[in-house]
Design a protein around this nucleic acid. Structure first.
Lengths: 342, 342
DNA sequence: ATCTTTAGGTAAATCGCTCGACAAGGCAAG
DNA sequence: CTTGCCTTGTCGAGCGATTTACCTAAAGAT
């Protein structure tokens, strides 16, 4: 089976090279009759135009680079699944393919992130792997490359982003707990990302300035991985140093569930003794017992929107982007009025 | 910042186009001195050769297509994470990039799987998403396209594959339980993949022909998703229809953990009342209480090996491939001698 | 001193497609 | 019967690399 080219199709169909090309690109220039005759031949040979040639001539690869974090178990993170599904769905619908990369140290060191765009292997890059040490991303400030941080922000650097509004999220969570009368709260924070820091700071601020009376917040770091295990350990630490707190807020659901586990293992009733609240609204949040109150982050939507934006950047429809998507409160059984509050 | 080409590098360095190209490709033809002078210019401009042009001229995209299952929560599956990490690591080390695709109905319907290879967008395809209905994969029999099933097999079709040896796995598991004296066993099977069927059949066969006395096996389907929830429901069903079984074997760890959960919820001690065994050895298997006995499947290794093989197929070093990788028994606390057996 | 090698470079023909400029034919209007 | 405009198709100049011969000068062989 010989490899066909557009030339063969032209010859066989009796039209010119250009005509075939125009047909293949759905150019309105071509009449339906011609289109049909050409397509018949295309179908007959099951022909697909060579994408390298196409890319070379058109100066576009129709490819998006997606960079995910270098966590060994990265794909076990529901977080990524939602995000990538959203990106994939939108990219595909626009005829774009996805080039997957993992932000390994190798990837960073060889500046693969630049290379991908400089070599035009990808038209744009969606970066899901940022943390507070990702200074190398500075190359994308004011660069001609199309770059977007997904569900991350980088204060101090002029980088495009689409993210959930972590500060708003913190406010929502804090207000929920404060409204329930909690005045001694433990916070399990994630401090290795800027969004994590934003969340922590806004949570603290909201508690400190609550009109009905400021709340004391003791916070600990839940660990780099924001994992259930980290949450478990963090809860232990919090309860040891502040035994009388009435609520634990965790920066994500996994840590919250870890905390609930510790409380269960140590005979503290949730929510009677301690209320627990998370962030994200992962599937599991609804299944634990009691159900976890949380702030819903629609990561699928973030994926969709991120992809929309990077495509607009590529097309030149916009030149920068800093979207913050809304979040919403989800109340389940794990939070209730603080004990001792009326 | 104008876009440079190899021509600019040639001009600036004083060498010919061809020389620059040879340098960029590490061709031994070029002397170190020349190489250095050219590379200096390349570095200076931070030049990276246009990959479309490269692909067009060299007839190779240096890209691998990886197709993953269309499960909404696909990425939450640890299974995939291991596999993809292995593939990524090997592909990257060989200079290949990964194009990610999800086997949506759209993907199947538009024959995207053919298109990717026909358009030379990818040099080969690693398919992780096969099930017993994937007849369309027939196009890859005797085709010039480089195609490989990852951790799947397709009896009846001449397709390349690299998979864990599910039959061996079944034997290992069965022998472990039989050796512990179990003679009434419940099997939670996965029946929507051929490997799942192989596992089931070999498990049943081994139990039936055990020299020290055949065991009775009642089996149920654990559901399309091989999920914890499916395992939970399956355990309930098994225990209802065969209350006196002494062991439950699940075709993967997640279902096994679901089964353990049901047993715990219904006051059946593991392993005293019922032994439970899984397959895969996911991280969680070591954390549940008691630890889950299982058959270890090294999916990371499957990823590595799959990638090795597809690259060999692409290079023409081999023309077909049907590798079965070994598995190993991991005994933890969830299995013990059958009650009533000495 | 002449003839081979060999090492190091280069010219030029592709690779397969896109797209702006141009052409031909048909038809309405002047 | 021109002229001008529309519609539909074609020409051909790139796009930016790779790669195969071929070339030249210097080193080795005799």
């Amino acid at each position: 089976m010989k490899r066909r080219t557009i030339k063969d199709i032209a010859k066989e169909s009796g039209f010119s090279l250009s005509t075939v090309s125009l047909v293949l690109n759905n150019h309105p220039r071509i009449s339906q009759a011609t289109r049909d005759r050409v397509m018949a031949v295309v179908k007959k040979y099951n022909f697909f135009p060579n994408s390298a040639a196409r890319g070379l001539a058109s100066k576009s690869s129709k490819t998006l680079s997606v960079v995910v974090p270098n966590l060994t178990r990265v794909f076990s993170d529901i977080y990524l699944g939602e995000l990538i599904s959203g990106i994939y769905e939108r990219a595909t619908s626009q005829g774009y393919k996805i080039l997957l990369d993992i932000a390994t140290s190798q990837f960073i060191k060889t500046q693969e992130y630049t290379k991908l765009l400089a070599s035009r292997r990808a038209d744009g890059m969606l970066f899901i792997a940022s943390d507070i040490h990702a200074d190398y991303l500075g190359v994308f400030e004011d660069s001609p490359y199309k770059f977007l941080l997904v569900n991350h922000v980088f204060p101090g650097k002029k980088l495009n982003y689409v993210s959930v509004d972590y500060a708003a999220s913190a406010r929502t969570a804090a207000e929920h707990l404060l409204g329930l009368g909690h005045r001694k709260i433990g916070l399990i924070a994630g401090t290795n990302t800027f969004t994590g820091l934003q969340f922590r700071d806004e949570f603290l601020r909201t508690c400190k300035t609550w009109p009905a009376g400021a709340a004391q917040v003791a916070w600990v770091d839940g660990g780099e991985e924001w994992s259930q295990r980290g949450g478990y350990a963090a809860a232990a630490k919090l309860m040891a140093q502040t035994p009388d707190l009435t609520a634990i807020m965790a920066a994500n659901d996994r840590m919250a569930i870890g905390a609930m586990r510790w409380l269960a293992d140590n005979r503290r009733e949730v929510p009677e003794a301690v209320s627990v609240m998370g962030v994200d609204d992962i599937q599991l949040a609804a299944y634990v017992n009691p159900g976890l109150s949380t702030v819903r982050h629609d990561l699928y939507q973030v994926g969709i929107e991120s992809c929309n934006r990077i495509l607009q950047l590529i097309k030149g429809e916009i030149t920068e982007c800093s979207d913050l998507l809304p979040t919403s409160l989800v109340v389940r059984g794990s939070t209730d009025r603080a004990r001792g509050s009326k």
